[in-house]
């Protein structure tokens, strides 16, 4: 245990995801030795991230203004919407540069153990968008785990009553650059059942 503020800082840092007690201690002493200017810059961005960042009113992504950069961009295809769990998933899909449509961020996945049901996710907003905007395709890009799959199944049920709407799910299968022999059976099984004609 360190005295007063140093231990407080270590405790606070230790509450961050992915930071254990050892790392928290290292970061704390790094900050202690840092230039005052560096510290005030860090203070400023921390302050800004809480005050200056809002969530896009349309898609729910993090944004500086009321609507985010992607939703404002007229060149993006408004008829295709990719539904993801978190803002970081938007960044992941954006990095592919393959997707020219828009997004909808749910803010999580169905997770009864943590008390997350449909009302805690931005599902009502999604249904509202489909009702009013000219959306032709919804791509379900939730994580391929238990909670993400359940969320996708739930959305399929909610979306099947919209006439003319196509609902698709991201393919799951083999990673690029991988070897067939090293794929686990579940992944390979899915890749096999999701095969396509070439």
């Amino acid at each position: 245990m360190y005295e007063g503020p140093v231990q407080d800082l270590i405790d606070e840092l230790g509450r961050l995801p992915g930071v254990g007690p050892k790392s928290a201690q290292r970061i704390a002493f790094h900050l202690l030795a840092a230039e005052p200017a560096d510290i005030s810059r860090l203070q400023e961005v921390l302050q800004k991230v809480k005050e200056g960042v809002v969530f896009c009113q349309v898609c729910g992504n993090v944004s500086e203004e009321q609507t985010c950069r992607i939703c404002r961009d007229a060149r993006r295809d408004p008829t295709v919407v990719c539904v993801v769990e978190e803002p970081k998933d938007v960044v992941a899909v954006e990095k592919t540069r393959e997707f020219k449509g828009r997004y909808h961020v749910l803010g999580g996945a169905l997770d009864p153990l943590s008390g997350i049901g449909p009302d805690q996710l931005r599902i009502r907003e999604l249904l509202g968008r489909i009702g009013s905007d000219d959306i032709k395709e919804i791509i379900l890009a939730t994580d391929p785990n238990t909670e993400g799959e359940a969320t996708a199944t739930y959305l399929v049920r909610m979306l099947r009553d919209f006439p003319g709407l196509t609902v698709t799910r991201l393919a799951s299968g083999l990673p690029m650059g991988g070897d067939l022999e090293f794929a686990d059976e579940l992944t390979l099984g899915r890749a096999l059942s999701g095969r396509r004609t070439v």
Binding site: L110, P112, G115, A150
Partner: peptide
């Protein structure tokens, strides 16, 4: 996950509420 859902729905119903089971079928 399903157990957690049933548990919260059950206790909500006993407390006089409706209990959210919309996702139960999923």
């Amino acid at each position: 996950q399903r157990g957690a859902l049933l548990k919260t729905a059950g206790s909500a119903r006993r407390a006089g509420g409706s209990g959210d089971i919309r996702t139960l079928e999923v």
